[in-house]
Design a protein around this nucleic acid. Sequence first.
RNA 1: GGUCCCAUCGUCUAGCGGUUUAGGACAUUAGCUUCUCAUGCUAAGAACACCGGUUCGAAUCCGGUUGGGAUCACCA
Length: 463
Amino acid sequence: MTRTRIAPSPTGQDVHVGSIAAALMNFAWAKKNNGQFIIRIEDTDRTRLVKGGEEKMLDTFDRIGLKADESPKVGGPYAPYRQSERLEIYKKHAEELVVKGKAYYCICAPDRLTKMREVQQAKKQIPKYDRQCFLNQEEIVKKIMDNKLPYVIRLLIPEGKIEFEDVVRGKITIDNSNLDDQVLLKSDGFPTYHLGVVVDDHLMKITHIIRGEEWLPSTPKHIILYQAFEWDLPVFAHISLLRNPDKSKLSKRKNPVWTSWYLDQGIFSEALLNYLALMGWSHPEGKEIFSLDEYIKVFDIKDIQKTAPVFDPVKLEWMNGVYLRKYPVSSIKYLVLEFYKKQKINLPEEIVEKTIPLIKERIKKLSDYLPLCEFFFKKPNIYEVDLSNKKELLKQIKDELEKISDWKANNIGESMQGLVKNLGIKAGEFFMIIRISMSGKKISPPLNESMEILGKEECLKRL
RNA sequence: GGUCCCAUCGUCUAGCGGUUUAGGACAUUAGCUUCUCAUGCUAAGAACACCGGUUCGAAUCCGGUUGGGAUCACCA
């Protein structure tokens, strides 16, 4: 059975798009193999905990369409799926390691550790815990018992080296001398990430860990933990991090990174997923546009690329436009209406429906709609071109349009073509004047059709 | 700085020793369609970081250099 997971930490206000990229691969791999995809909340850092973060994140996963088979929301056979509710489990396991001689108690004060590291750094040594407490373990344990001192439990890194196979990167070797005696259980009783992931991934029977390459350097520690517990190793696949244009890892300082920001812009979840799928992976037939179902069919973790991709919002928008054009008018109408309703703007349904065919090839995302179509709902108050010296021409246009009894786009077009011929003015210039008087803008949806939608009375008024 | 990872057009990528004048997509430029802007179609420019080696033959294998990135917490 294939079981994968995404384990977000609610230390941000929302899900990072990079997490969605990783979640997508986990999701696809689980589904492809008829397995389960799990969401686990890793909320062990109470100091950085963002209020409402977890709820928002879970909501974002719902919106994006990556449905978890097991999560804090839907529960599951290995509940709870929130680490803050599993404290006893971690403590028990940490203590088990102490009994096995694979971990030890430590009561060193933070400032001593800081100073120690500074000295090591100054001597150009690797900053590592000096094992003071390990060397006096009996005495330390007694101190803790007698005085009820706060303590941490540290992993005892054995000598030797760790070798493991990463699906994406191949064989990786690290000498244990580079590893620090990692804290496993904090003095507040919470586990550190390292204890938490290993224990939970094992207990929740996770078979494949597909996660960002930022975890590659700490994977040896995790493997040491698996070995200490005498547990089987899962398959590791470390995927490359999404990058800013300057190649640094995608960060909110340089780019919008929160997934709901894109969704709130009117980027479709399908388009976002499709775009993200192409970050570090490509369709075997070279396709750019494909559904989630198709992705699941053709995706393979063996095809994941090692190179770190730059996240390109321009291509994302292009792709969103492709999706938009593929949707039927009725769907776009609904999406536009809902999109603006969320912003407390209620648009008249009939007009929106009529305008969709005119603009679906002209907008790339839902938020592009109103800037282009606002003139359908209200008279423009800003005119991009000054028409005050064209009054006579406008009058002629108005007189001509008044004659039209059947107010249809093609009749309007014929009438205006006739007028422009008679007047002998450049067609482009002529129509631009009408365009400005109707929409206030130099760029608009097709004129005749727009005028039909506006209605005769309104058009004459605007002229 | 130590450790680890990475390296094909501006960007996403195909390529997995010869079929390659290195293919596609976004972006850019030009043209066609056209009442604007788009869409659509056509075309153009644009890349194997560098140096060695292996080989009859290297973008593809190996080594080094350079460059980029990640990571070194009682954060994840």
